[in-house]
């Protein structure tokens, strides 16, 4: 079942001579449970594409279908509801509220969706446990490491059980060890059947995906299926020949 499907999606800025196509006629299809990675150089439009799909920005043209519904023509209000129920976001800059604890950050989407405070809190505790941060539930983001903050952000994205999680350069601000933590998290999500679309220029993240799409100048230029093992062995990679 196709969770996300776009046809001819475009986003342009300016007009006439100064027309810039940030996203240029993109057709994307994401199946349920798939992890799709979109790679490309800076400015290729991958973040813009993600914002369009998630309803944070309006497309200039084309169609977006999410969980069977057409969503490119929705009002701001309907888009907001979409973000509440169908889509979860993870950002490069985490975008946590500095004055709220980890738990309060995670329960916020549920509260905005109108769930009872008790239910929201319970769900938040459960999610923090899932990302391994139960001990940090009462901590403020400024006291957490980058990796921990991103894990809180992931927990927050899962708050309303979205059908699709969108991650925009999730490890962009993280060091190597934190990247590994987040990678583990994404693998867990994948194993649990979560549909993920990750925009990244970190090859390590891309390597975890089922499908890797390369983007350049606003358009898709390559698509690779990454299932199946590799031909070499690890020992050879390590230099242990003979």
């Amino acid at each position: 079942m196709s969770i996300l499907s776009t046809r001819g999606l475009t986003k342009s800025y300016g007009d006439g001579e100064s027309l810039v196509r940030a996203v240029d006629g993109v057709d994307l299809e994401v199946e349920s449970g798939e992890t799709v990675a979109i790679m490309g150089p800076s400015g290729c439009g991958k973040s813009t594409l993600l914002h369009l799909v998630g309803g944070l920005d309006r497309a200039s043209g084309g169609e977006i279908h999410l969980a069977g519904r057409r969503v490119d023509q929705l009002t701001e209000r309907a888009l907001a509801r979409l973000r509440r129920t169908d889509v979860g976001f993870v950002f490069q800059a985490f975008h946590l509220m500095d004055e709220l604890t980890a738990l309060e950050n995670v329960e916020l989407p549920a509260l905005l969706a109108g769930h009872s405070p008790r239910a929201a809190k319970a769900r938040a505790a459960e999610l923090l446990d899932r990302v391994g941060l139960t001990t940090k539930a009462g901590a403020l983001p400024t006291t957490l490491s980058g990796g921990q903050r991103q894990r809180v952000a992931v927990a927050r994205a899962l708050s309303n059980e979205p059908v699709l999680v969108l991650a925009d350069e999730p490890t962009g601000n993280l060091d190597s060890a934190a990247t590994l933590d987040v990678l583990r998290l994404f693998e867990d999500l994948h194993d649990a059947g979560q549909t993920l679309v990750i925009v990244t220029h970190d090859e390590r993240i891309a390597a975890t995906a089922d499908r890797l799409i390369t983007m350049r100048d606003g358009a898709f230029v390559d698509e690779t299926r990454l299932t199946g093992g590799s031909t070499g062995n690890l020992g050879a990679l390590a230099g242990l020949e003979g």
Partner: peptide
């Protein structure tokens, strides 16, 4: 593609 697969294994 091959290197990506190896990267995945190593990871």
């Amino acid at each position: 593609r091959e290197l990506l697969r190896r990267l995945r294994d190593a990871q």
